[in-house]
Amino acid sequence: MDFQEYLNLQRRTFVQYYRCLSTSLLNKENLDEDSNFLIMPPSALDRLTGLNIEFPMLFQIKNPSTELATHCGVLEFIADEGFIHMPSRLMAHLGIQENEVVLVRNTRLPTATFVKLRPHTTDFLGVSHHKELLEYNIRNKFQCLTAGETIAVAEGDRRFYLDLLETRPADAVCTLNTDCEVDFAPPLDYVEPPRAPAPAPVASSQGSGEPPQFTGAAARMDGKPVEQPPPAPVPAGGRHGDQPRQPAQFTGVAMRMDGKPVELPPPPTPSPAAASAGALGAPKRKIRFDAPAAGSGVSKGKEGAGAGKEQEKRFSGTQYSLKD
């Protein structure tokens, strides 16, 4: 910023060069080095009052040589003329040494709606009341937050450092009288647990043309020894591997869970028609149950009588009526 621009800004707003000192030099008990409050000279208050600056009074502090900037509130107007005091943490962030010049300018910041924080250590995860801890520290120490900085929150003698990864709706926000969403990134010293090794692939029998083989031991439910089937005969002049392996047959005895003897059904006897159809390779027919057509009768001649007897022979079940 050149001198002419500096003079033009002074007519419209508060902008001033000051030499910077740390707040620890004041030896005041109510000053917190973890906060971002400024101590300014009384002349600054007169100037701000004449410009009708609205509350809260927020300021941008910039290092003129590096253009690094941060944002602060004001706590008191008791500093010596030409000087301001600010926390040493912010001085280190701006790269400012004692008695170096900074540019102070009042500003307006949007109200915070979202803040993303990253703890430095996993000890912060052990705190059971993050909400109350953040509310208390931010309300008493920080009137504004700037993305890219590190803040410190305290609980008794414990101090937790948090990086401000993101703030919305701007890179610098006001934290007064707002409901703000807070998100947390993994701590800097967080180490992910090692992943479990993937299980070794099991050799599959697909594509080999053979069924999967059972590798266990055969056993019977009654405790008797299992009768193994005889080995398949080997063709003359060949080897066991010349013929495809047949699946093993079940050689046990059928049993019921209640101990009663098992009644085996007799083997079905195929009808001559089915046998002939199977022999010829004729396809199976679909059976369709339809209502009889109107006007269709059954002839009472010999053919009808013979057909009736044949039907009686084929139907061996009990006759029922839907009316019963």
Rank of each mutant, 00 (worst) to 15 (best):
residue 313 K to T: 06
residue 299 S to M: 14
residue 199 P to W: 11
residue 214 F to K: 13
residue 194 P to Y: 06
residue 288 R to D: 03
residue 292 P to R: 04
residue 285 R to D: 02
residue 278 G to A: 12
residue 283 P to N: 14
residue 298 V to F: 15
residue 214 F to Q: 11
residue 238 G to W: 01
residue 294 A to D: 15
residue 240 H to K: 14
residue 242 D to M: 02
residue 301 G to Q: 10
residue 309 K to W: 04
residue 241 G to M: 08
residue 285 R to Q: 08
residue 275 A to I: 05
residue 284 K to T: 05
residue 247 P to Y: 04
residue 254 A to I: 04
residue 261 P to R: 15
residue 213 Q to A: 15
residue 257 M to V: 03
residue 196 A to K: 07
residue 297 G to V: 00
residue 299 S to Y: 09
residue 254 A to Q: 09
residue 292 P to L: 03
residue 206 Q to T: 12
residue 308 G to L: 14
residue 270 P to M: 13
residue 208 S to E: 12
residue 237 G to I: 00
residue 262 V to E: 15
residue 242 D to I: 03
residue 291 A to R: 06
residue 201 P to N: 13
residue 267 P to I: 03
residue 320 Y to S: 03
residue 295 G to Y: 02
residue 320 Y to M: 04
residue 253 V to M: 11
residue 254 A to S: 09
residue 288 R to K: 08
residue 239 R to W: 00
residue 309 K to T: 10
residue 207 G to K: 09
residue 295 G to C: 04
residue 287 I to N: 10
residue 255 M to D: 07
residue 198 A to F: 10
residue 212 P to R: 15
residue 229 P to T: 10
residue 262 V to I: 08
residue 233 P to K: 05
residue 255 M to Y: 05
residue 314 R to G: 02
residue 194 P to W: 01
residue 245 R to F: 05
residue 259 G to Y: 03
residue 318 T to G: 00
residue 312 E to F: 14
residue 266 P to V: 04
residue 264 L to Q: 13
residue 243 Q to G: 01
residue 320 Y to F: 08
residue 203 A to S: 11
residue 281 G to K: 10
residue 215 T to K: 15
residue 248 A to D: 04
residue 218 A to K: 13
residue 274 A to D: 07
residue 265 P to G: 06
residue 265 P to L: 06
residue 212 P to D: 15
residue 307 A to H: 14
residue 220 R to M: 12
residue 310 E to I: 05
residue 259 G to P: 00
residue 318 T to I: 01
residue 251 T to R: 12
residue 222 D to N: 15
residue 245 R to H: 12
residue 299 S to D: 07
residue 259 G to F: 02
residue 285 R to E: 01
residue 270 P to Q: 14
residue 271 S to F: 04
residue 210 E to L: 12
residue 300 K to A: 05
residue 263 E to I: 05
residue 316 S to P: 02
residue 221 M to V: 12
residue 261 P to Y: 12
residue 307 A to Y: 14
residue 258 D to K: 10
residue 314 R to T: 12
residue 302 K to G: 11
residue 280 L to F: 02
residue 293 A to K: 09
residue 257 M to T: 11
residue 203 A to V: 06
residue 279 A to Y: 11
residue 238 G to I: 00
residue 233 P to T: 02
residue 293 A to S: 08
residue 236 A to C: 00
residue 268 P to A: 15
residue 301 G to W: 11
residue 237 G to D: 01
